[in-house]
Every structure is written in C-alpha cells, then in structure tokens.
C-alpha cells in the first residue's frame, strides 16, 4: 500500500486523467464526531462497464490488457477497509466513474492524509486541459478550489505559469492550515 492517502488519491486520479475526463472532483471530508475521513474522486471520463468495474478491485486480474488499472484501486480499497472503513466504486460507460473510500479516522491502521497540496497542485499544473474541483473540509468548515473559477479570473493565462503555479500551492497550503487549526490528519 502507499504510505499516504494523498498518494493513493494522486494515483486514482491518474485513472481519471487517462479516462479522458474533462472535470475531476476530489473531496476530502473529515468528520471528527463520526470518526470518519471520507475521500471521493468523481470524474466525467469514459467510464467502465459492469465487468470492468468488478475487475479493477481484483489485484490478480491485472493483465497487460488492463495494466492501466493495476494495483492502484486494490491498494486504495485495502487501505480504507483495513481501518474498518469501506470502499465503493461505481461507473457508467460514457458517463464517468466515482470512487469513494471511507477511513475510520482514529484507526491505528489509517495512513496519514499526507501531502494533499502536492497531489492537487501537480494534478492541476500537469494536466492543464482538465478542470479540477477540490473540496476539503473538517467538521463542516472547508474550502474549495475550482480551476474553472481560476481560469475565468486568469483570462488566457495558463494554470502552469510559474506565478499561478505558486499561487495555487499557497492557496492550498494556507487554506488547509486555516481549516486544520494546528490539527494534523
């Protein structure tokens, strides 16, 4: 398994990138009262049929033909389930795919959330033809980064321009710090 939830999210979101998504939504929602850390990755990519969905959660099914899926989904599923949480993947051909992983927040087996700034920042700046909607919240307080809104403000200035890239990094770091208020997840 990957040592941070953020690395799994980066990995799973690559599937959305390769599925030719035009919008990828990533939601990280922490609820301390319910002892839950929930991750949802939702895309409007090419989607999968029922059989393919069954296959992606099976690490041993991976053949050269389906190598684009590989161990990413099984790792993600296992990391959530090993905390006593749950995992769900649903997909529709031509519509998109939704992956949800719920982690029990206090479980000793839960990986740290890790460097979400890097995950979101690199997805945005390295895939400038795709829009990203990132939601992060802790106990109902949260923020959103919507590249569609950023693009509107930026006019034609690309998201991977150094100044914009730095801004995105700071936006993620500062807003996350404000929401976390010194707590680490």
């Amino acid at each position: 398994m990957l040592p941070e939830i953020a690395l799994s999210i980066l990995d799973i979101a690559q599937n959305s990138v390769r599925a030719d998504a035009s919008l990828i939504e990533i939601t990280v929602k922490i609820n301390t009262a319910a002892d839950l850390l929930s991750v949802v990755i939702n895309d409007d990519g090419c989607g999968m049929d029922e059989q393919q969905v069954k296959n992606v959660v099976d690490p041993f099914f991976t053949t050269r033909k389906t190598r684009k899926i590989g161990l990413g989904v099984p790792f993600f599923k296992m990391s959530a389930e090993s905390t006593g949480g749950s995992f769900e993947i649903s997909s529709e051909k031509g519509v998109g795919t939704r992956v949800r992983a719920d982690y029990v927040l206090s479980s000793i087996d839960r990986m740290p959330l890790g460097d979400m700034t890097f995950t979101v920042h690199s997805l945005i700046t390295l895939n400038t033809d795709i829009d990203f909607l990132y939601n992060y919240s802790v106990d109902g307080n949260g923020y959103t980064l919507d590249t569609r809104q950023f693009r509107q403000i930026l006019g034609g200035v690309p998201l991977n321009t150094p100044d914009v890239s730095d801004y995105i990094k700071e936006y993620l770091d500062e807003n996350t710090a404000e929401i976390n208020q010194g707590r680490a997840f």
Binding site: L154, G155, V157, V164
Partner: peptide, 9 residues
C-alpha cells in the same frame, strides 16, 4: 490571482 493575470497579460 487577478493581480497575477494583470501582470502576466
């Protein structure tokens, strides 16, 4: 962000 745009444009 708007300031960056004005600078970059």
């Amino acid at each position: 962000l708007a300031a960056i745009r004005n600078k970059m444009q």
